[in-house]
Computed example of a mutant assay.
Amino acid sequence: MGNAFALQPDEPATKIQHDLKELRSFRSGLIKDRTGIMSRLKTQTLPITCRQSKTRLAQVDKNIAEINAEIDRLINSNDTLANSMKILRSIPGIGAVCASTILIEMPEIGSMDRKQVACLTGVAPMTRQSGQWRGKSFIQGGRKVVRDALYMPALVAMRFNPDLKAKYQAMIKAGKPPKVALTALMRKLIELANALIKANRNWVIKEA
């Protein structure tokens, strides 16, 4: 795929990129722990198990907050990352976690064209075809961590971003499944993020 889209090999990870990737991975594990604890709490009835689960949950929440603070510190210690973070946070729906995930897991952001960034994220539709037969479009490959991080921002955009809301509703009206329409919004968001960082400018609302 790299040859097909003229992507250059990744540069060796810098120390800060390595540290950020380790922090993000650790945070992901903590979030899974938190989800598991909250799920168990729903079925626990004994005072001792509930008490210990709540104590563990409070500790995990504290750990997540500490990891988030360290991620923010490292990003702000680098002018380029700090500027890109500011640009990403200007996009409605993209919060600190999504923005940091994009910067950590896709350091190429801002250096690609629309097709490249969509393929690298794994939100570009692919179609199985053979001769005159064409199958349904689907997505594959790409960086799942980035794709997962874009899911919630796409849901927010579907409700509160006028342009993307209109696009979503138009696709649904045209008969597209909700999952396909939501993936299209995810693609729009990552393409927008890439374009704004490339242009070194914040998102601004369109004038009527």
Rank of each mutant, 00 (worst) to 15 (best):
R114S: 15
P162H: 05
W133M: 11
I104C: 08
Q169L: 15
G95P: 05
K167S: 12
L88G: 01
V156G: 00
Q169S: 13
K176W: 04
I102S: 04
T127Q: 11
S100R: 02
M158A: 07
P153M: 09
K176H: 12
M85A: 07
A82T: 07
Q116S: 04
A124F: 03
K176Q: 12
R128Q: 10
D79G: 01
S130P: 04
K144G: 08
T101F: 06
L103C: 08
R143A: 02
L88N: 00
T121F: 01
K179I: 12
C119Q: 04
L81D: 10
K115I: 14
Q140M: 11
V123K: 01
L81H: 08
N76Q: 15
S130M: 07
T80L: 10
P178D: 10
I71F: 06
F138Q: 01
R143C: 05
S100I: 04
M152L: 15
R159D: 10
P177I: 12
G110H: 06
M158S: 09
V117E: 02
K86L: 10
V145K: 11
Y168F: 15
P125R: 00
I71H: 02
Q169F: 05
I94D: 03
F160N: 13
P125N: 04
I91Q: 03
P107H: 13
K167M: 15
I139Q: 00
L88D: 00
G122P: 03
M112G: 01
G110T: 13
P107R: 14
M152A: 09
G122D: 06
I102Q: 02
D79V: 11
M85W: 05
I172T: 14
Q169C: 07
V117R: 00
G93V: 06
A82K: 14
W133I: 08
S137K: 08
S77D: 14
G135A: 05
G135L: 02
N78C: 14
Y151P: 03
G110A: 14
P177R: 12
F160Q: 12
V97R: 12
I87H: 00
T127F: 00
L74K: 09
A181F: 06
V123F: 03
A124N: 01
V145W: 05
T101M: 08
A124C: 10
A157S: 15
A118F: 05
K167R: 14
P125W: 00
S137A: 14
F160I: 09
T80P: 02
M152G: 14
D79Y: 06
E108R: 15
K115W: 11
L164Q: 10
M152P: 11
M171I: 11
T101K: 07
D79I: 12
P107Y: 13
E108M: 11
A118H: 04
D72G: 05
N78S: 10
R114H: 14
K179E: 09
A96D: 12
I75G: 02
K86A: 12
R89H: 07
R147N: 09
K136A: 13
Y168A: 03
I87Q: 01
P162R: 03
G122H: 03
G135E: 05
T80I: 13
A166P: 05
R114T: 11
R159P: 07
N83M: 11
Q132I: 06
D72S: 12
M171E: 15
E70H: 13
E70D: 12
R89Y: 07
I102F: 09
K176P: 01
W133H: 12
Q116W: 04
A96P: 05
P153I: 06
V146L: 10
R89G: 03
N83E: 15
M152F: 14
S84L: 05
D113G: 13
I109D: 01
N83H: 14
A99Y: 02
